[in-house]
């Protein structure tokens, strides 16, 4: 009898505690949860998000590359060339972050910031697409692009997304140089990527 009474008292204590303590979530669809002495109201939040277009070549900031004109495999009578497959640079990766504005797809373009000397050809090609920690619609132009100082498409139409940051994610680039004339690139020469 004493044990039974203890159990009853304990149950009542739990019941009392249940009324006294609160819950973390509530079904706000159920009016019974707030109709007695409570209430419900609402207002409107207006959200404005800016469009975002950021593109980057990794590793950053050390993303300059060099093609030496004095190689160990030079041969008399043959052109000086950095464009052999063995001399190609595949260390650079294109990262981007993009939020679409007005549902308009964008593209990524590439060009040089100044004229390229005659006899010197620079080719850029996307050779790999990887997403590590990213979330983006991949649509690369995998054809080799002969660089000029005019915009050319290197990534076709895409929507919002982000590639993940750093080397090893996004679009892997291959740079090759065919330098039959032995020309040097002008000081300040840059390759420019832009989202348009």
């Amino acid at each position: 009898m004493i044990n039974r009474t203890k159990h009853l008292l304990f149950s009542l204590l739990l019941l009392t505690a249940m009324f006294g303590f609160s819950q973390e979530t509530l079904n706000a669809n159920d009016p019974n949860s707030f109709v007695l002495g409570g209430g419900q109201g609402n207002n409107q939040a207006n959200l404005t998000l800016i469009p975002i277009s950021i593109v980057d070549i990794e590793p950053d900031p050390e993303n300059g590359i060099s093609f030496g004109g004095i190689g160990t495999d030079l041969e008399a009578g043959m052109p000086i060339s950095g464009g052999s497959p063995a001399g190609a640079n595949e260390e650079l990766w294109l990262n981007f972050t993009h939020r679409v504005d007005n549902f308009q797809p964008k593209r990524i373009y590439v060009k040089s910031n100044m004229l390229i000397p005659n006899g010197l050809n620079i080719t850029i090609q996307i050779i790999n697409t990887v997403s590590i920690g990213g979330n983006f619609p991949a649509n690369p132009n995998t054809n080799p692009i002969l660089l000029t100082n005019s915009d050319q498409i290197i990534v076709y139409d895409f929507g919002s997304g982000y590639t993940g940051d750093g080397v090893g994610t996004g679009y892997q680039l291959r740079y090759t140089i065919d330098n039959t004339s032995g020309a040097s690139l002008p000081v300040g020469f840059q390759i420019i990527y832009s989202i348009q």
């Binding site: 706000a28 949860s33 707030f34 419900q40 609402n42 409107q44 959200l47 998000l49 919002s160």
Partner: peptide, 17 residues
């Protein structure tokens, strides 16, 4: 960035017990 850009609105509800 996957959240659409531009202007949008949503409702905030306050329920008091």
């Amino acid at each position: 960035v996957l959240t659409p850009g531009g202007n949008s609105s949503f409702q905030v509800f306050y329920t008091i017990t």
